[in-house]
Amino acid sequence: MDVFMKGLSKAKEGVVAAAEKTKQGVAEAAGKTKEGVLYVGSKTKEGVVHGVATVAEKTKEQVTNVGGAVVTGVTAVAQKTVEGAGSIAAATGFVKKDQLGKNEEGAPQEGILEDMPVDPDNEAYEMPSEEGYQDYEPEA
């Protein structure tokens, strides 16, 4: 019985440690998101679009440190934060509304985080759909 109880105690310690790591990862992701939003706020009209992409990228980098179902929630929060940063930029006159959601080359930025393969159960990952990809044929 002692062996059984000791095993359960060790398992509990492992769960607590994993929860603490997840909590730490979420806190880091939130900190990076805040950094990115402050970065966007300090940019001029020309830099705002690039700044919004930076927020998304920093958040995406930190999301990889967070495991399990938390990833889905962090990704949703990050996307809403990026959308909010863009709205703030438009409201303050840093950028025109028609410039939001495009990178410096004018290509749409939507789907940055949505296409990231995420499995809350950590069982399997699927690649994003290939609808947006084109076949590449090298020139002879």
Rank of each mutant, 00 (worst) to 15 (best):
G84W: 10
V15L: 10
E114G: 15
G73F: 06
Q24R: 13
V95T: 09
K45P: 02
E28F: 09
E46V: 07
Q79W: 04
K58N: 05
T59S: 04
A56K: 14
K60R: 10
E114F: 14
A17M: 13
K43V: 14
E83R: 10
P138I: 04
S87P: 04
Q99C: 09
E28H: 04
V118T: 03
A78M: 13
E137S: 13
Q99F: 12
V15C: 04
E105K: 02
K10C: 02
K102I: 11
A69Q: 09
D135H: 07
E28T: 08
E46A: 04
G14S: 09
Q62F: 09
V74G: 02
H50N: 07
N122Q: 08
Q134C: 13
V37M: 08
G36M: 14
G101Y: 12
A85H: 04
M127P: 04
T64Q: 08
G7A: 05
E139F: 14
M1F: 00
G7K: 08
V15A: 04
V37Y: 15
G73Y: 08
K21N: 03
E126I: 12
G93S: 06
K45R: 11
G14A: 15
E114D: 11
V74F: 09
A91N: 05
K10N: 04
K43F: 12
G25S: 12
V71H: 03
G31M: 15
V55R: 01
E61H: 04
P117R: 03
D98I: 03
V82D: 02
H50E: 07
L8E: 00
G36A: 10
G14M: 15
E126M: 13
A19I: 05
T33S: 06
P120C: 06
L100F: 02
T92P: 04
A29W: 09
T54C: 13
V16G: 03
Q109F: 12
D119Y: 02
E131L: 04
E110K: 06
E104M: 15
V55E: 00
A29L: 07
M127W: 05
T64G: 05
I112D: 05
P128H: 04
G86F: 15
K6N: 09
E46Y: 06
G36Y: 07
S129Y: 05
V48L: 11
E46W: 04
T22H: 02
E139K: 10
I88K: 03
T54W: 11
L100E: 07
P120Y: 05
G25N: 04
V15S: 00
K21H: 04
V16N: 05
G101N: 02
A30F: 15
A91I: 05
L113D: 09
G36V: 13
V15R: 00
V118I: 04
M127I: 12
G86V: 14
A27F: 12
A140Q: 07
L8Q: 00
T44L: 12
L8T: 00
T72P: 02
I112V: 13
N103T: 12
V52M: 14
A85T: 06
Q24I: 10
I88G: 04
G106W: 09
D98S: 12
A85M: 13
G67I: 10
V82G: 02
L100K: 06
N103W: 13
A107S: 09
G47K: 09
G73L: 12
G132I: 13
G67N: 04
A27K: 08
K97G: 11
N103L: 06
V48E: 00
S129D: 09
I88W: 14
G51E: 01
A53P: 01
Y136K: 12
A89G: 07
T72H: 15
T72G: 10
T22Q: 00
A85V: 11
A107M: 08
V77R: 03
A27L: 13
Q62P: 02
S129F: 13
E35Y: 14
E104A: 12
S9V: 14
G41W: 09
K80E: 02
G7Q: 13
Q62A: 09
A11F: 12
K43N: 02
Q24L: 10
A11K: 00
E137N: 05
E28G: 02
P138G: 14
V48N: 00
K60F: 08
A89E: 03
S129H: 05
V52E: 00
S42T: 04
Q62T: 08
V74M: 15
K60V: 11
S42K: 13
Q62R: 10
K102V: 13
D135V: 10
L8D: 00
G47R: 13
D119G: 06
A11M: 15
T64A: 13
G25C: 09
M1N: 00
P128T: 05
D2W: 02
E131T: 10
T59C: 10
D2V: 00
T75R: 06
N103G: 05
E110T: 14
E139P: 05
E123F: 13
D98W: 11
E123R: 04
T92F: 15
G14R: 12
T44Q: 01
H50R: 14
M1W: 00
E57F: 08
A29H: 03
D121V: 04
M5F: 03
N122T: 06
D135G: 07
F94W: 15
E20W: 07
S87V: 13
G67R: 12
A124P: 06
S87Y: 14
A56T: 09
A30I: 15
S42M: 11
G31L: 12
V66C: 04
V37G: 01
V63D: 01
D121S: 10
A78P: 02
G25W: 07
N65H: 05
F4V: 01
K21E: 00
D119P: 13
A140K: 10
E28A: 06
G86E: 13
V37E: 00
K102W: 12
V26G: 00
P120M: 08
M116C: 13
G31A: 08
D2Q: 13
A91S: 05
T59K: 01
A11D: 00
S9F: 15
D115F: 11
G106H: 11
A69M: 04
A29I: 14
Q99P: 02
G132E: 11
K45G: 03
V70R: 01
D98A: 05
E126D: 11
T54V: 14
S129W: 05
P108V: 06
A56D: 00
E105R: 11
T75H: 13
K96P: 05
E61W: 14
V26N: 00
Q134D: 08
M1A: 00
V77D: 02
A69I: 07
G14N: 06
K45I: 11
G7M: 05
K96R: 08
A19R: 02
E131A: 11
E139C: 03
K43E: 01
Q79I: 11
E104T: 09
S42H: 06
K96M: 14
V26R: 00
E131M: 02
Q99D: 15
V26I: 12
V77C: 07
G68F: 01
V95P: 07
V118A: 11
E46M: 12
V37P: 00
V82N: 03
A91Q: 09
V15I: 14
G86Y: 13
T75F: 14
E139M: 08
Q79E: 03
T64E: 08
V77T: 03
A140D: 14
M5W: 04
G86T: 07
S87T: 06
K97C: 10
G47Q: 14
E123T: 09
L113M: 07
G84D: 03
V40T: 01
V49E: 03
A19W: 15
V118N: 11
A11E: 00
Q79M: 11
F4Y: 15
A17W: 14
A27V: 07
S129K: 04
D115T: 11
T81Q: 02
T44D: 00
V63Q: 01
V63C: 05
E83Q: 10
A90D: 06
E61L: 07
E83C: 04
V63E: 01
G25E: 08
A76S: 07
K97F: 14
Q79A: 09
S42D: 03
K97P: 10
E104Q: 12
K34E: 00
K34G: 02
G51A: 14
S9Y: 08
K12T: 12
L113G: 11
L113C: 03
E126Q: 03
G67T: 11
V37T: 01
Q134M: 12
V74S: 02
T64F: 14
Y125D: 09
D115M: 09
Y125F: 15
E61A: 07
K96Y: 13
T64R: 10
K96E: 11
A124V: 11
A85Y: 14
K58Q: 06
K58A: 13
A90G: 01
K80P: 02
E20C: 08
Y39W: 11
A107L: 10
P120I: 09
H50G: 08
S9E: 08
E130D: 07
E83N: 09
N122M: 10
G47Y: 13
S42E: 08
G51F: 11
V118G: 08
F4P: 00
Y125M: 03
G68P: 04
K34S: 01
E57H: 06
L38C: 08
Q62D: 02
G36T: 15
Q99L: 13
G73I: 07
G73K: 11
K80H: 08
A76V: 09
Y136C: 06
K6P: 00
K23C: 06
E57I: 11
H50Y: 06
T75I: 04
V15Q: 00
M5S: 02
K58T: 07
E35L: 13
G132F: 10
K45L: 10
M127F: 10
V63L: 13
A29Q: 02
V26A: 02
T81N: 02
D115K: 10
K32T: 02
A29N: 01
